[in-house]
Amino acid sequence: KVTYHVPNEEFARKLYKKAVDANLNVEIRVENGQFIIHIE
């Protein structure tokens, strides 16, 4: 399980798409202006 803290929405979207394309379980949320992405 990996967690990324991404300040940039564009990068967060790319990361999310890559994980989904790889059939990984992804959860994304915004906290204090940062995008928190959990990948399992």
Rank of each mutant, 00 (worst) to 15 (best):
K1P: 08
K1R: 11
K1N: 10
K1G: 14
K1F: 11
K1S: 12
K1Q: 07
K1L: 09
V2R: 11
V2D: 08
V2Y: 10
V2G: 09
T3V: 12
T3Y: 07
T3S: 10
T3H: 12
Y4F: 11
Y4S: 04
Y4I: 15
Y4P: 05
Y4N: 06
Y4C: 15
H5T: 11
H5A: 09
H5P: 07
H5C: 15
H5N: 09
H5D: 04
V6H: 04
V6I: 11
V6K: 05
V6L: 08
V6Y: 09
P7N: 14
P7H: 13
P7A: 14
P7E: 14
P7V: 14
P7Y: 15
P7K: 14
N8M: 11
N8D: 12
N8F: 14
N8W: 13
N8I: 08
N8L: 13
E9C: 15
E9N: 03
E9I: 12
E9Y: 10
E9W: 13
E9D: 05
E9A: 05
E10S: 06
E10C: 15
E10W: 06
E10H: 05
E10D: 11
E10R: 03
E10F: 04
F11T: 14
F11I: 14
F11M: 14
F11K: 07
A12N: 04
A12Q: 04
A12L: 13
A12G: 04
A12T: 04
R13C: 15
R13Y: 08
R13A: 07
R13D: 08
R13L: 12
R13Q: 07
R13E: 10
K14Q: 11
K14G: 03
K14L: 11
K14N: 08
K14V: 10
K14F: 08
K14W: 14
K14A: 12
L15V: 07
L15Q: 02
L15K: 03
L15D: 06
L15I: 11
L15G: 01
L15S: 02
L15R: 01
Y16F: 08
Y16T: 04
Y16H: 06
Y16R: 04
Y16D: 04
Y16W: 06
Y16L: 09
K17M: 06
K17C: 11
K17I: 11
K17Y: 06
K17S: 04
K17P: 08
K18N: 10
K18E: 13
K18F: 13
K18D: 12
K18A: 14
A19G: 03
A19P: 01
A19C: 14
A19D: 02
A19F: 15
A19K: 01
V20Q: 10
V20K: 10
V20F: 08
D21G: 06
D21T: 07
D21C: 09
D21S: 10
D21W: 07
D21V: 10
A22D: 05
A22Q: 07
A22F: 14
A22R: 05
A22T: 03
N23V: 15
N23S: 07
N23R: 05
N23F: 15
L24R: 02
L24W: 08
L24I: 05
L24V: 03
L24G: 01
L24K: 03
L24Y: 07
L24M: 06
N25M: 12
N25S: 12
N25K: 13
V26S: 01
V26H: 00
V26L: 02
V26P: 02
V26E: 00
V26C: 05
V26A: 07
V26D: 00
V26M: 03
V26Y: 01
E27C: 12
E27N: 06
E27F: 11
E27P: 00
E27I: 10
E27A: 05
I28N: 00
I28K: 00
I28G: 00
I28R: 00
I28M: 12
I28F: 08
R29N: 04
R29F: 11
R29I: 13
R29T: 10
R29V: 10
R29A: 04
R29W: 13
R29L: 11
V30I: 13
V30H: 06
V30N: 04
V30R: 05
V30F: 14
V30D: 02
V30K: 07
E31F: 06
E31T: 07
E31L: 09
E31V: 11
E31I: 11
E31Y: 07
E31R: 06
E31Q: 07
N32Q: 04
N32K: 04
N32W: 12
N32P: 01
N32F: 11
N32Y: 06
N32D: 09
N32S: 05
N32V: 05
G33S: 02
G33F: 08
G33C: 09
G33L: 04
G33D: 03
Q34Y: 13
Q34W: 14
Q34V: 15
Q34N: 10
Q34E: 10
Q34F: 13
Q34H: 11
Q34I: 15
F35Y: 10
F35T: 02
F35H: 01
I36L: 04
I36E: 03
I36K: 02
I36H: 02
I36R: 02
I36D: 01
I36P: 00
I37T: 00
I37S: 00
I37R: 00
I37K: 00
I37G: 00
I37F: 02
I37M: 02
I37H: 00
H38K: 10
H38L: 15
H38P: 00
H38S: 15
H38I: 15
H38N: 09
H38E: 15
H38A: 13
I39K: 00
I39S: 01
I39M: 03
I39W: 02
I39A: 01
I39Q: 01
E40Q: 11
E40K: 08
E40T: 13
E40S: 14
E40C: 12
E40M: 13
